[in-house]
Write a protein that binds this DNA or RNA. Structure first.
Lengths: 195, 195
DNA sequence: AATGCCATGTAACCGGTTACATGATTTA
DNA sequence: TAAATCATGTAACCGGTTACATGGCATT
């Protein structure tokens, strides 16, 4: 149940229409909580029905017409409640790690290409975050909002840094391994009682 | 489409019944790809129907009876194919980051407690990974499988390290902020054109 | 016989994804 | 007026989550 709160946050920052929200979820918020326009429209409907947001008055409600929403007091309260509520962190779930684990038993053939590609993607993302940081958070900026948003961006930067380092490490490791279609040792036993 | 391949990997490592797989997904594989027993049984059925795995011969197929599966050549081939295939990394999606972003506009009241709790959880996980590393990957272990599995564990360790550092940083930052119910500046504008 | 655990499932729901549909506005 | 684009939706599907059901086995 995080999408509605992501939308509430975006709308508190600035009242927007569905399409504007969609565009903002392609940058900004979307860097750590992505959403498609279908999700957004669906959720906007629910939020309005629940009385947490409302359409800005003075707008035609027909189909192809722009409709902007703003957050109502109840919505702000719900957002504050949710922000402070205890929530368990989601366990890690990463396909690349799974693939390497699989490569340990079926062989590493072919995976190197995609490791390299991922490295490039993460390097690009890291560069983008770097640009945002220098643009939006110059050394002097220290309002409370700025500090918190900078903190979030820092997480993104550090995560991308981690991935680039780890992927380089993985590629170096692969280079030292025999690149056969199957690891030595038949079906990979022993090796299950371990990590 | 990763769960079937997670199961295939586990079964190649060692043929198992549904419950045994469930237990193994609570440690080992589950550290980076979790699954419940319902998912596992459902997926085992599909994999068997697709001819990628089969029940070990010589077993009663009644309801409360244990049934073990092994991977067929087609399953191993599919796993190798999937491992090497190009796959885009999933965009980051993290609730805590979203909550901090929300706190920037509705205030930081109450979030500190959960930040501390998350820090503890990540510290505990980090310690657990550390134990696994010293137990399963002593300095001398350097078979191909071990190196790859160690690499995967390293990712887990580094990720938990990142989170503990970042959470400490976040707590330090919070301590310097006014702990009011709302950030100064009304609805948080300006601040949307940014990250 | 009752209780509890082992083991395998079924069913309903929920959020995210993909494909498609429709109306309104702008531009060629 | 045709095409392209803006803007808002609907529908079907799919994987993950939660709750519940059922059968077998061991212990008391």
């Amino acid at each position: 149940m995080s999408l509605p709160h992501a939308i509430l946050t975006a709308l508190v920052e600035k009242p927007s229409s569905g399409l504007e929200l969609t565009r903002r979820f392609d940058r900004s918020i979307g860097y750590f909580w992505s959403a498609t326009h279908q999700q957004i429209y669906r959720e906007l409907g629910k939020l309005e029905a629940d009385g947490l947001i409302r359409a800005l008055p003075g707008q035609q409600p027909s189909r192809g017409q722009k409709k902007s929403y703003e957050v109502l007091p109840a919505g702000r309260a719900e957002l504050a409640r949710w922000t402070a509520a205890a929530q368990d962190p989601k366990p890690l779930r990463d396909t690349m790690l799974l693939r390497l684990r699989a490569a340990a038993v079926v062989g590493t053939t072919g995976i190197e290409t995609d490791l390299r590609r991922h490295l490039e993607l993460h390097e690009r993302q890291l560069a983008e975050y770097g640009e945002i940081e220098t643009r939006d958070f110059p050394p002097g900026s220290d309002s409370a909002e700025d500090r918190l948003r900078h903190l979030v961006l820092r997480a993104g930067i550090d995560l991308e840094t981690f991935w680039t380092r780890w992927l380089r490490h993985a590629l170096a490791e692969l280079a030292e391994l025999p690149d056969d279609g199957r690891m030595p040792g038949g079906n990979g036993l022993p090796g299950d009682g371990r990590a």
